[in-house]
């Protein structure tokens, strides 16, 4: 089984264009994640001599993903499309925030959405309810989106020039941090119903963020959540990340978040390079 896409897994990755009247039956597409791997070229050479030789490889483990991410970045760049990778644990309010953001932006600039979940079309249908185009990626057994999946989804979505593509990654604070999708920016969403110490517990995710949205701040009066401690925890994991307090239901901070997006569409493609983990000599924590 391939856990990247679930090839040979009956519950493998599925990409579905969700239209206003998408029925329950998903529209299946091959997303081109090489089906030939692991085919097993039988070893024949040298077996009779029993001699071994050492072959230097010196390549990044995720080189293939990074190549595909680079191709996505180029594809997006030539169209002037801003792609933002939204990551969080399940239940942080990503989809509600998306709905609010789309309504608030009101088509200036146009927004389309790539939804990532293990199963179901629920989120893409919710987003579709706002009137914006949405493609659902179901990862099956997979716990994150990868660059190959996003590439297929982008071709399906066909976003207009000078627009925003919001990518809702699979709800998971661990695995998505490792996979470059070709996005211009990474945004981590945390809600005040979670622990304020999460940035210290999941530093890889927060270290990879350009912006951290602290959601559900309308609930703060009812909770024992210290936003100051949270913000200092974010800075310990990533001194350069901005933190913005928002409420997807109450509206607080949404205008600033929308401006953040508008500024970056105007500014053109982001400066995010490929893979942050490169060579180990990469500029680690501080993105």
């Amino acid at each position: 089984m391939c856990a990247t896409c679930g090839c040979s897994d009956p519950a493998g990755t599925r990409i579905t264009q969700v239209t206003a009247d998408t029925a329950a039956a998903p529209h299946l597409h091959d997303h081109g994640h090489g089906n030939g791997h692991g085919a097993g070229q039988a070893g024949t050479a040298d077996e009779d001599t029993g001699e071994t030789r050492t072959v230097l490889l010196e390549q990044q483990v995720l080189a293939r993903n990074d190549r595909l991410a680079g191709a996505n970045r180029e594809w997006l760049g030539t169209r002037g499309v801003l792609a933002v990778n939204l990551m969080s644990s399940p239940g942080s309010g990503k989809t509600t925030l998306l709905e609010r953001t789309i309504r608030e932006l009101a088509g200036r600039p146009p927004v389309s959405v790539v939804e990532g979940d293990q199963e179901s079309l629920i989120d893409a249908q919710r987003v579709r309810g706002t009137g914006c185009a949405a493609v659902q990626i179901n990862t099956g057994a997979g716990c994150h989106l990868d660059a190959g999946m996003l590439g297929s989804a982008l071709r399906e979505l066909d976003p207009p020039p000078r627009s925003v593509v919001l990518i809702e990654n699979v709800g998971n604070l661990v695995c998505p941090a490792l996979f470059d999708l070709g996005e211009a920016h990474r945004v981590v969403i945390m809600s005040v119903t979670e622990g304020a110490d999460k940035p210290l517990k999941y530093p890889h995710m927060f270290a990879a963020a350009d912006l951290v949205l602290l959601n559900k701040v309308d609930l703060l009066p009812h909770l024992d959540f210290d936003p100051g401690f949270f913000e200092s925890s974010v800075r310990r994991a990533n001194p350069r990340a901005e933190v913005l307090r928002v409420s997807a239901t109450g509206g607080e901070g949404i205008g600033i978040w929308c401006e953040w997006l508008r500024d970056r569409v105007t500014a053109g493609p982001g400066e995010r390079g490929p893979a942050r983990r490169d060579s180990g000599a990469a500029d680690g924590v501080a993105r």
């Binding site: 070893g43 050479a45 040298d46 077996e47 029993g50 001699e51 071994t52 030789r53 050492t54 072959v55 230097l56 490889l57 010196e58 390549q59 990044q60 483990v61 995720l62 210290l200 530093p203 890889h204 270290a207 800075r235 310990r236 994991a237 001194p239 942050r276 983990r277 490169d278 060579s279 180990g280 000599a281 990469a282 500029d283 680690g284 924590v285 501080a286």
Partner: peptide
């Protein structure tokens, strides 16, 4: 030892220079 980087001088403005490697080095083949 972890990604919470704090220099002994108190600064958190720190760049990682090693430890993030994820690389295939070589193989011995028959």
């Amino acid at each position: 030892d972890d990604l919470i980087a704090l220099c002994p001088c108190g600064s958190a403005d720190v760049g990682i220079i090693s430890g993030r490697e994820l690389r295939i080095r070589s193989m011995e083949v028959l």
